[in-house]
């Protein structure tokens, strides 16, 4: 009611954030600071100052290629996830309550299934003797089994299952808020279904897509298990590189450089999506 009373309560309750704040300071901010310092160190005891690890990482075309491959994997996964998420979201909006419940269940189940299990399943599907190759051979769509493990295509397919729920949940939420009479009006005025989708549904659902794309990009670029198991030794992404350097080669400053690079790359990608959202809102 009175401004003084509410600001007083706010002042008292403000302190309730302190326990989590201090926990984050001790176990989140401090470790990340150490990571940054480590990337400028000579050895894994934080001794000395050196740009050697940074120079080695960015001076080598192989490592620059790994950064590029990781970013591309994130973007391709976002694109492929979008391709299938929109039709599922449209189906969801057009369904009755019973079917909606079933669809939500299908969307949530992979999200709550262990990432190791999901990756394991994709090996059974994508391998040379796997389900997909058996089906393709039986249908006569291919004469020799396709090699999908250790390829970017196979990895993106496997990642799609893991990432699609992250795209679908915000997308469905936003699309449920779109007034159906807008689509009806577009149709009544002679707009084709394609045109209605492009001119009404796509622009109005953009905030949901951006929220989903951000999560998918952040998650796909750091999906260590899928990248190592499906990608194998042939495809190297930043998370695999970080793990090898930290736990196999024991070159901590170098692993720290790769980690800081991954952090900055993901943050840059996420900011890009946020900027896209602001741009879309101002021009819409």
């Amino acid at each position: 009611m009175s401004g003084a009373a509410t600001s007083e309560t706010a002042g008292v309750e403000w302190r309730l954030a302190a326990p989590l704040g201090l926990t984050y300071l001790a176990f989140f901010a401090a470790p990340l600071l150490i990571l940054l310092v480590m990337s400028f160190s000579v050895d894994d005891n934080l001794g000395g100052f050196s740009l050697a690890a940074w120079a080695k990482f960015w001076g080598d075309p192989f490592y620059r290629g790994v950064v590029w491959d990781t970013l591309r994997l994130g973007l391709v996964t976002v694109a492929m996830t979008t391709l299938f998420a929109y039709p599922i979201a449209l189906l969801f909006i057009a369904s009755g309550p019973g079917l909606q419940r079933l669809l939500l269940f299908i969307v949530l189940l992979p999200l709550l299934t262990s990432v190791v299990i999901r990756t394991f399943a994709w090996i059974a599907i994508l391998s040379r003797e796997g389900v997909l190759n058996q089906a393709l051979l039986a249908l006569g769509l291919t004469t020799a089994p396709l090699n999908l493990l250790q390829t970017e295509l196979g990895l993106v397919i496997a990642l799609m299952q893991i990432e699609m729920p992250l795209m679908l949940l915000p997308l469905i939420t936003v699309m449920q808020q779109i007034d159906p009479s807008l689509s009806d009006a577009s149709r009544a005025l002679g707009g084709s279904k394609w045109r209605t989708f492009r001119k009404v549904i796509l622009p109005l659902s953009l905030p949901g897509w951006i929220a989903g794309a951000t999560l998918v990009f952040a998650s796909a670029t750091t999906a260590f298990i899928s990248q190592t198991v499906i990608g194998g030794a042939r495809l190297v992404y930043l998370p695999t590189l970080i793990w090898q350097q930290a736990m196999v080669v024991y070159n901590w400053p170098f692993a720290a450089v790769a980690s800081v690079t991954l952090l900055v790359a993901v943050l840059a990608g996420v900011s890009l999506f946020a900027m896209l959202g602001r741009f879309a809102r101002t021009t819409a």
């Binding site: 990340l32 952040a218 750091t222 260590f224 800081v260 991954l262 993901v266």
Partner: peptide, 8 residues
């Protein structure tokens, strides 16, 4: 939720 967990 957004930061790469592996770096953390």
């Amino acid at each position: 939720l957004i930061l790469p967990g592996l770096a953390f």
